[in-house]
Design a protein around this nucleic acid. Structure first.
Lengths: 117, 117
DNA sequence: CGCCCCGGTTACCTCTCGGATACCGGTCCG
DNA sequence: CGGACCGGTATCCGAGAGGTAACCGGGGCG
């Protein structure tokens, strides 16, 4: 059934690493520069953000373009492949919006049961 | 923007831990016993499978019921909350089915570029 | 009794992820 | 020249996820 390395056991189905979903959503509205990404993602250190971006670039989700000339800029943009992730990602976010509370309640109830015995 | 602990930065949007998606799909067709889950998931050691199931139970996605009497059985079943995950999960799997090859191609191309300089 | 199956648990180890901190080369600007 | 900004790197580190292997108590069963 799931003998082989099923794709779903690998990362992409989980939207990449920890910050990848947020990075993707940040790029949804168009290309962004490194320092522009750092503003909404201020909790992410540059090293980690770089790692996330490199992974997304490697998998063909974002494209990194260095605009040369004076005032050189580096921009990150979603590729078509990256945009194709927006659908599933949106589905997952919608799910979270609808059911997040239930999940928290379940956790609380579980903790209660644990302590009770 | 994403100042606070945004839900999407937490695990549930990523369908739990490494094996959770597969476990959920295994339970899609109805309740399964621990040893029944171990068959399709033969690459998962009991410890890890237990951990995954406990986490899913804690978050209210699966229910663990011990059927007493002689020949005691332990069954795991999806709760309604767990079933609500099937939609997004299906979306992610469909995405993988459609775009998996593109992703692999992108990776290959990237490696090539790396080695070329 | 001895053995097997079921549903785990325990101990231990490795390895990766992510975080903290500091630093760096290039470029512009005064 | 000095300083700031940009787009990162380098280094170190701790926590925890996940894997390996061994073990275990309860119940049936020959």
């Amino acid at each position: 059934m799931f003998d082989e390395l099923c794709p779903s056991s690998l990362n992409p189905i989980r939207f990449g690493d920890k910050w990848a979903p947020l990075v993707i959503r940040c790029l949804e509205g168009g290309p962004r520069r490194f320092s522009e990404l750092r503003v909404p993602l201020r909790r992410v250190t540059p090293k980690v953000l770089t790692a996330s971006l490199r992974a997304l670039e490697r998998d063909g989700f974002v494209e990194r373009t260095v605009h040369p000339g004076p005032l050189q800029r580096v921009e990150y943009a979603l590729t078509p492949l990256g945009r194709s992730l927006l659908g599933p990602l949106e589905a997952a976010c919608a799910w979270a919006g609808e059911h997040w509370d239930e999940l928290l309640d379940a956790r609380e109830a579980y903790e209660g049961r644990q302590q009770a015995g």
